[in-house]
């Protein structure tokens, strides 16, 4: 049994198991930290770069999904530096996200909307150039699920979900700005042997993978 530690997050005293990742400790104690790619009980993927916090004694903000908690840790989820990083990270993600909330199946159940509300950030970044590849086709080959790669934020959750519940047909492809989540050989979900289990849609934070109405 690991031991219980006490820590302070935003002036709130909380206790947790030593070595647990800070992000989950905060969330369990109703302290919100923006996040997209983190999956509880999995090795932190640490790709979305939104869960930055300040830990007293550390030189720079750290990602809370990779930060184990320890005795007497003092955490601030907000600071000028954290807010700046989260704002820029969020803006960058939004500059590469097909924005169409009104018609999006993820509307009102979207982590991006949640972050924007919590941190008072605009959904439409002003100075950045739109990077969405609008030509990426929507995969509508299955009966139940549909995949719109233009909305994908590359958190990778659907890949894990598909491995565990479905046929494990999804993975990342290409690099740099061209990175996408797709099937082997970039064929349709149907051709790739999708089971239509819907596990991917369940974990998708942004409505890129969704269940048809």
């Amino acid at each position: 049994m690991s031991k219980t530690v006490n820590l302070t997050i935003d002036d709130k005293q909380v206790s947790a198991q030593e070595g647990e990742m800070l992000l989950w400790v905060a969330l369990e104690n109703d302290i919100y930290i923006p996040h997209l790619c983190a999956m509880k009980d999995y090795t932190p993927y640490a790709a979305c770069r939104l869960c930055f916090v300040e830990v007293e004694g550390k030189k720079a903000p750290v990602t809370s999904c990779t930060q184990p908690v320890y005795e007497n840790m003092v955490v601030h989820t907000r600071s000028e530096r954290v807010d700046e990083l989260v704002k820029k990270g969020f803006e960058l993600i939004m500059s590469n996200h097909h924005l169409d909330c009104k018609n999006c199946p993820g509307n009102k159940n979207c982590e991006l909307q949640k972050i924007a509300k919590a941190r008072k950030l605009p959904l439409k970044p002003k100075k950045l150039i739109q990077q969405v590849n609008e030509e990426l086709p929507i995969d509508d080959s299955m009966d139940k699920i549909v995949y719109d790669p233009r909305k994908c934020v590359l958190c990778g959750k659907c890949i894990t979900a598909c491995k565990e519940n479905g046929n494990g047909i999804l993975n990342f492809a290409h690099r740099g700005i061209d990175r996408v989540i797709t099937t082997f050989g970039n064929i349709s979900l149907k051709e790739a042997g999708c089971l239509d289990c819907g596990a991917c849609a369940e974990v998708c934070p942004v409505g890129a993978r969704s269940i048809k109405e």
Partner: peptide, 22 residues
């Protein structure tokens, strides 16, 4: 660097592309 970025994290993937465009 943009071409060689693996594309995993937000800042490197999208941030360097934004800088390159500018």
């Amino acid at each position: 660097t943009q071409k060689e970025s693996c594309g995993k994290c937000t800042f490197c993937r999208i941030g360097t592309k934004q800088m390159l465009d500018i």
